[in-house]
């Protein structure tokens, strides 16, 4: 078990981070190169002002028409995404690992807060799952891959929660947790989790089109 842990948290972690960073950069650069080659006019219309106007509105709860129309979903999706980013980065146990390996560290969350944030992420996944299962307009456009990516996101948080509380089989859960985290990192550039990479660009372009040409709001 110890060897297995050494393997997943050593070489495999390297592979995961390289694929995540390299893959994300590749997807981003490949997209920009193709735009330059086939649709360079897109750059003509990009406007920093309207890109930011659009991005800021959509990143602020209730700042857009659709966020206001869907208050429950808005609260859930913002809580989910914020906790999804913040809790792994500022978790004491994670920062300790960075500290041990690289001698770098930063501010950390109190464990209790991180625990609640983890539960929020898991609850968010359950909410999105129920939405997929019960809302006809979501169900109609749901593919098996949608459940799959939801599971990929939920797994590190479920295993992390179990590992923190050490309720059963700690060493095994720990290995699974590390593995789940690595799977998620690698999945980001290569599945529709890539909306993390692409959405600033699609948002910026739509914001620019609406601001520069259409002179109306895209939010």
């Amino acid at each position: 078990m110890h060897d297995l842990y050494q393997f997943v948290s050593g070489p495999l972690a390297w592979v995961a981070f390289i694929l995540f960073v390299g893959g994300s950069l590749y997807r981003m650069i490949a997209m920009l190169v193709e735009v330059k080659k086939k649709e360079p006019f897109i750059f003509t219309y990009m406007s920093l002002k309207y890109s930011l106007r659009s991005i800021v509105h959509w990143m602020t709860p209730f700042a857009t028409y659709n966020w206001r129309r869907k208050p429950v979903l808005t609260v859930v999706t913002f809580a989910f995404h914020i906790c999804l980013f913040v809790s792994p980065i500022f978790l004491l146990a994670h920062v300790t690992l960075w500290d041990e390996s690289w001698d770098i560290s930063w501010w950390t969350l109190p464990d209790g807060v991180a625990d609640v944030m983890t539960l929020i992420v898991i609850a968010g996944c359950v909410f999105f799952l129920l939405r997929r299962l019960t809302q006809p307009e979501v169900q109609f456009v749901t593919f098996p891959s949608d459940y799959f990516i939801l599971a990929i996101v939920a797994a590190p948080f479920v295993t992390g929660f179990l590992a923190y509380h050490q309720w059963f089989g700690y060493p095994m859960v720990m290995v699974l947790h590390v593995l789940a985290g690595e799977v998620m990192l690698v999945a980001i550039p290569f599945t529709r989790l890539s909306h993390m990479i692409y959405s600033p660009f699609t948002r910026a372009y739509m914001g620019s089109e609406f601001g520069v040409i259409r002179k109306s709001k895209d939010f």
Binding site: A30, N66, R192, F201
Partner: peptide, 29 residues
Amino acid sequence: GARLKTYVNTCIHCGLCSEACHYYMSHDK
């Protein structure tokens, strides 16, 4: 090119566009 590909890859199948559409709203969702 990249525009179409990116749109298709970015769509998370959330259905949040549905209620924008008068066809959808007029056909009892």
